[in-house]
Every structure is written in C-alpha cells, then in structure tokens.
Simulated scan of single mutants.
Amino acid sequence: MIKVGVVGGTGYTGVELLRLLAAHPQVDLRAVTSRGEAGRHLADLFPNLRGHVDLVFTHPDESDLPGCDLVFFATPNGTAMQLVPDLLAAGVKVIDLAADFRLRDPAAWEHWYGMPHACPELLAEAVYGLPEVNREAVRGARLVANPGCYPTAVQLGFLPLLEQGLVEPGNLIADTKSGVSGAGRKAAVGTLLAEASENMKAYGVAGHRHQPEIRQGLRAATQQPVELTFVPHLTPMIRGIHATLYARLTGAAADLQSLFEQRYADEPFVDVMPLGAHPETRSVRGANHCRLAVHHPRGGQTVVVLSVIDNLVKGAAGQAVQNMNLMFGLDETTGLGAAALLP
C-alpha cells in the first residue's frame, strides 16, 4: 500500500483527489491537512466522503507528512515550494497540483505568479506530469508537476500535428471554455450563481498564467518557437473544458484522422473519436479522459481540433493519480476506470 498525504484538501481539486484516493485499491490515506479546518472531520465539509474517508483535517505542522510515501499538494500557487525541499530530503515523493514546478524558468514563474521562486534549484528536476509525453520520466521521478487543466486539453490536441511538423508553430489559436469550478472554491463575485449562470465571458485575453506552460510544452514537441493565441472563457457549467484549436497546415494535408488515431492508440485516457465527431464535455464528466476530434474544414489550410476534459479529473486530480500510479509501478489506470457521469 502507498502511504499518502494530501496538503490542502479543502478546495474542489482537493475533494476530487480525495474521492479518487478513497476508492484506490493501493492507497492508504494517512493525512489530509488544512490550516483553517484543522480538527474538523472531512465528511462534515464534504458529505460525499461520508463512509469513505474517516479522517479529520490536521494542521500541516502536526501531520506526519515525512512518514508518507507520497504527498499531494492541492494548495494555492506558491505553497508547495515552501515545503517540498524538506519532504524530498526525507525521502517522500511529491506531486504538486498547483503551478509551483511547471515552468522551467524562475524568471517566468516570478513574472506570471508575482513572487520569487523559493527553490529554483528544483525546477530542472521536476518532471512535467503529462503522461502522454513524459511517461517514462514520471516513472522515475520524485517530484512531479501536475499539468494545468487548460494546458492538458490544449497540448493533447496540438501535439500530433506539431510532432509531425504538419502545422505552422507560429500561428496557433486555442479558443477554450471552462466550467466555474476551475476558478476554485474561494468566494468571488464572478462565480456567484447570479453572475455566472446564463452568461459566458472571455477573460485573461491580454495574458493568462497557463499560456507560458502551454507554449513550453508545445515548444518541446516541435523544437521550434511557438506563438499561441490563447483565449479562455468562463461558461455556466460546473465542470468541463472544451478547447477548439486552430492551426495552419504547412503543406498538403495528410490523413489527419489516422495521424491522431496512431498517436494515441496506446493511450488509455485519450479517446480519438470517429471522423466528423463533436465531443461533448458531459461525455468526460467525472472521468479521467480526454476526447479528441480532428476536422479539416472544406479541405482548406486550417485544421480544427476539438478537445474536451473534466477540468477536475484529467485536468487535475485524475491526472495526479495517473502520475502516482506510474511513480509506484502500478498499472496507470488503477483507480481510474469509472465511466463518465450522465446526465
């Protein structure tokens, strides 16, 4: 059994992680920390865990995190980097679901997240946990940076095209929509029911924190400079991301459907849908899947890829469990086989 601790289990990503870990056959959940909720039963805050997790929140300073095999951080950006060095020194493996170790450049981190990095010496070691790209590196990692939700959906959609040099890397567009759970569990006017319901709006058009993460991953795939126009939108649903991706072909169109099918043929959590399909966010709700469809409208020079994920599962907690499975030599699908929820 893997002895697991979770730091920061009070947000939407945290409770989704706890839901998955509670059902995992190889996990012994030892500690869940929260400074604000210390002493409170998890099931009092999250009634869906009643009968599944019999733990109370503990203060991080009072939890036996160094006694765990693995610690997940489901904390705000800037928290994990304060604690990770000591855990690694104690022999504990770490998966960070925030952004502390996603960017390789500490100057870029400081620019986008507004604070200096506390342990920049670990940025080169941290493995970016997109299994469809870095599976073997994740297996041997002691520190994994779990990808963001938008970056997961966007990268999986663009990767086959860029890896084969079929599209112009300097002319990529990602038009993305997310449910309000992606904004977190904090109180905010913009995510109130009366504000978010029956409404859709773009945000972060001038620059979004996930853009440098996406560009970093796509640049590694093509070994060329990448220019990306990335526009996120908030939609009136709780879960889900829908990314509509546009790219310009560099020459004559290849068999794009076969390209995508072959690229992801052995990937358990990427589903390339039939020619002409239009994947829906509800088809991945609660599941660790990315569903893709590739289109070549009117045989022109533009390729359109549709990519859908659940932002809390394949975009966060599910992908983190997938990475844990790889790090501990388990079948990576362990604990993640549930079908999506409908309706």
Rank of each mutant, 00 (worst) to 15 (best):
133 V>W: 05
134 N>E: 09
134 N>T: 04
134 N>G: 08
142 R>W: 07
142 R>K: 06
143 L>I: 09
145 A>R: 14
149 C>A: 15
149 C>V: 13
149 C>F: 10
150 Y>N: 06
150 Y>G: 04
150 Y>P: 07
151 P>W: 00
151 P>N: 02
153 A>R: 06
155 Q>F: 05
157 G>T: 00
158 F>K: 02
158 F>T: 01
160 P>V: 07
160 P>R: 10
163 E>C: 02
163 E>F: 04
164 Q>D: 14
165 G>Y: 11
165 G>T: 14
167 V>A: 12
168 E>L: 09
168 E>G: 10
169 P>D: 02
169 P>K: 04
171 N>A: 10
172 L>R: 05
174 A>M: 08
175 D>F: 05
175 D>V: 00
175 D>A: 05
175 D>C: 03
176 T>Y: 03
181 S>W: 14
181 S>F: 14
181 S>M: 15
185 R>V: 15
188 A>F: 12
190 G>F: 15
190 G>C: 12
190 G>N: 15
191 T>G: 09
191 T>D: 06
198 E>F: 11
198 E>S: 15
199 N>M: 06
199 N>W: 03
199 N>L: 04
200 M>W: 01
202 A>N: 04
204 G>A: 06
204 G>L: 09
205 V>A: 12
206 A>H: 01
206 A>F: 01
206 A>N: 06
207 G>Y: 03
208 H>E: 13
210 H>Q: 08
211 Q>S: 08
212 P>I: 00
214 I>S: 02
215 R>M: 04
216 Q>I: 03
219 R>W: 01
219 R>N: 06
219 R>A: 13
222 T>E: 11
222 T>R: 14
223 Q>P: 03
224 Q>Y: 00
226 V>W: 01
226 V>N: 00
227 E>N: 15
228 L>Q: 03
230 F>P: 02
232 P>E: 11
233 H>L: 11
234 L>E: 06
234 L>R: 03
235 T>M: 14
237 M>Y: 11
238 I>Q: 12
240 G>C: 11
242 H>S: 08
243 A>Y: 13
244 T>A: 14
245 L>H: 11
246 Y>N: 12
246 Y>M: 13
247 A>Q: 07
248 R>H: 03
251 G>K: 12
251 G>H: 10
252 A>D: 11
253 A>N: 07
254 A>M: 07
255 D>F: 00
259 L>F: 14
259 L>V: 15
260 F>N: 02
263 R>L: 00
263 R>V: 00
264 Y>A: 04
